[in-house]
Design a protein around this nucleic acid. Structure first.
Lengths: 251, 251
DNA sequence: GTAGCCGTTCTGATATCCAGAACACTTATG
DNA sequence: CATAAGTGTTCTGGATATCAGAACGGCTAC
């Protein structure tokens, strides 16, 4: 997807922002070294970004500013799926007491749109905006299972099937078997594949023409959740939440 | 705060992003017209941003992508105040059943870091990342009241004191009187100043050296909240939440 | 006191951005 | 069904803005 005529100056600005994110508050000299740019160039970019609110300066340290949250928050708020799913995902967290999530696919990756913590929820280090490989989570598998097959092939091609933990999916065959199972059951599970001792169960949200819009999940420590409840009450709850969202999204 | 040597190309990229936010999904030609740029320039910028995930293309329409949420979410997650305040603001919403908020000051404006909806919460169109003038909300007044006076003068100079509604603060004198009252009471109120029929009550969060870090608030419809509870139970709850955050933030 | 950091400013050679024209394609329209 | 008018995309070269490097001023350290 490489641009035919990329704007190199813009790419430098973006690289600078991402470096700032990685490093946190930083000085001009260290950034210039890490990015192989002159100090003056870095300084020009930083002050320009500062003028527009994207970068803050405190003392001699620069850091990314909350303007990014404004842009991101505004985009999320404008998404129909978020608008109708938000109260349902929250309700699901309150009902179950667990951690619930909403994921969408963008450019072949999963993006968490929100999470909601119930009373007894585990504390994962996911956050709204976080990106993840689709084949490594129940949420992602729920989405992949309902994408057209050529699309899935594209995504594998683009992002690979890196095995994140020993238990996780790491081959094309494993993945397609898993997706088949998801379609049969109606929901996807993750039994310690991403994090030992953590179980997730996820259901897809589809629109009127059966295209998948995203997925909803519940995450729970394995100690708290029996096999029966995993495939019984809990899956019912997740499927029901997904269903309510589907109904509301099609008016 | 104008940069001495602004990077004009970067400014064009940022203008493009903000235009995309305002308009939602847009075509190349309309963007070029609105921004007074050539079509090829707009196209080059868009494809560059797309390569890096900041812009998405569906059909012939471009739109801003969730990468902004990733950057913004990651910044928020790295903020100490957010980490310790998040569970408290949520607990405050559960206790009171109302809408609760967390605001910080950045570049003279208020930025909502989060909001949490209790069972009976009103539905405002605020969202995480939204910016607001400090003098127009209880949250903002709670912060202004505890900033050094020269800083407050700077902010007035920079952003003015536009009156958003007839009841809201619109002069330097009104503001300083209000801030004095906030310091006396310990909390700030907004009685229909921003939205008719909406009452807010906000308390500042300060660090060990008494610098203000942000503010916490509860928003409630006036019909549900008497004068006694406003200045009694409810203010106690907000102050208590702010206090817990202060304790936790200083270890 | 002076050596070594830092961020900031300045300059001009040079890399690159971008207007405009041409192209490919789809959708209106007579 | 032709053809006109819209779209996004590609290409080019001359104008322009970017950026390396050097110089500056303000720190802190020793």
């Amino acid at each position: 997807m490489g641009a035919k005529h990329p704007v190199r100056t813009t790419e430098k600005t973006l690289a600078l922002i991402e470096e700032l994110m990685r490093r946190g508050p930083s000085g001009v000299t260290e950034l210039a070294q890490d990015l192989d740019m002159g100090k003056s160039a870095v300084h020009n970019h930083l002050t320009t970004l500062q003028d527009h609110g994207y970068v803050l300066k405190t003392g001699d340290q620069y850091q990314p500013g909350l303007k990014f949250l404004e842009v991101g928050g505004s985009i999320r708020k404008s998404m129909k799926l978020y608008q109708v799913a938000e109260p349902e995902v929250k309700a699901l967290a309150d009902e179950t007491g667990e951690l619930t999530n909403l994921l969408v696919e963008e450019q072949g990756l999963g993006v968490y749109l929100m999470r909601s913590k119930g009373e007894d929820a585990v504390d994962l280090d996911t956050y709204a905006g976080l990106r993840t490989h689709l084949h490594t989570t129940a949420l992602g598998k729920a989405i992949l299972a309902h994408l057209p097959e050529p699309r899935v092939e594209d995504i594998i091609e683009q992002h690979g099937l890196e095995r994140e933990t020993p238990r996780s999916i790491g081959s094309r065959e494993e993945l397609f078997d898993a997706l088949e199972a998801v379609r049969d059951r109606g929901y996807a599970i993750d039994d310690g594949e991403r994090l030992a001792g953590l179980r997730c169960i996820a259901a897809p949200v589809k629109d009127a023409s059966d295209d998948v819009l995203g997925a909803v999940s519940v995450s729970s420590p394995a100690t708290r959740i029996s096999d029966e409840s995993l495939h019984g009450e809990l899956s019912e709850r997740v499927l029901s939440a997904a269903n309510v969202i589907e109904l509301n999204i099609n008016y």
